[in-house]
Write a protein that binds this DNA or RNA. Structure first.
Lengths: 121, 121
DNA sequence: TCTCTTAGTATGTTTTTTCGTACCAAGTAC
DNA sequence: GTACTTGGTACGAAAAAACATACTAAGAGA
């Protein structure tokens, strides 16, 4: 969407879409999929830099615990947003990157960054 | 952002931005502000239809409880994303709408809806 | 042999969210 | 006088999320 779309245009476009789809909303399930303390953060880090190893990701999201990072990554993988590549080396190496579906979330992060640049001091 | 921006272009643009801002990232704080089970849902409902009364909002987010809706709305109001207009009538009437800052989140929801239309069956 | 490495897992506990129920004001309709 | 209305609040209980800590494999280097 270009930045010049008005509120009313959005209501018309997306609002009508939702009404005509009969409850099959294209936004609500996505919101739910991205819910959780770390998911958006992880996806965003992988937008900026990719692939990233488990340890690197952990360092970037600093106060995160192993358990949290593991479980969030598993869920993102299950939703096919993140790809996990395991190399059978010692010590182990695992690299995480965005899938095509994950990369398609870029416009979301771009829109967020636009808002942030306007309003975050 | 137009849909044709590539992953690499985003990395370059936003990635450089973050590096040059020295940790003052325009995305992370926004993500955190929008965190919580109901906040994005509420904002989205107010994108589609506005203003909405407390009761109407509650109906749209159906399994939500009074407590949750109240606290989420308060936080959104504190972040100046949602405006609360109280009419002194009996029975009480309170209407919620997006502020200008709130309306500026439209591109985010538009981007989400684009993703949803592509990938949600 | 001892230590270091990485990418986790297992466990139990603490902290945070969320829920459920009851309650309020104060005017209108019956 | 009774019930109904709305937009909440208060409280404790239940559920969920997050945490800290300890542990693993299996090779490299000292």
């Amino acid at each position: 969407m270009n930045q010049s779309m008005t509120y009313e245009e959005f209501q018309e476009k997306v609002g009508n879409l939702i009404l005509t789809e009969g409850g099959n909303c294209p936004v609500t399930p996505v919101i739910q999929m991205l819910q959780g303390k770390w998911k958006l953060q992880i996806l965003y880090e992988l937008c900026i830099q990719s692939p990233l190893r488990f340890g690197a990701l952990k360092k970037m999201l600093k106060p995160i615990t192993n358990t949290m990072l593991t479980s969030a990554l598993k869920e993102l993988e299950a939703d096919d947003l993140v790809h996990r590549e395991q190399y059978n080396e010692i010590p182990p190496r695992v690299e995480y990157s965005l899938t095509e579906q994950g990369k398609d979330l870029l416009p979301v992060f771009y829109a967020i960054s636009q808002w942030g640049m306007k309003y975050i001091p």
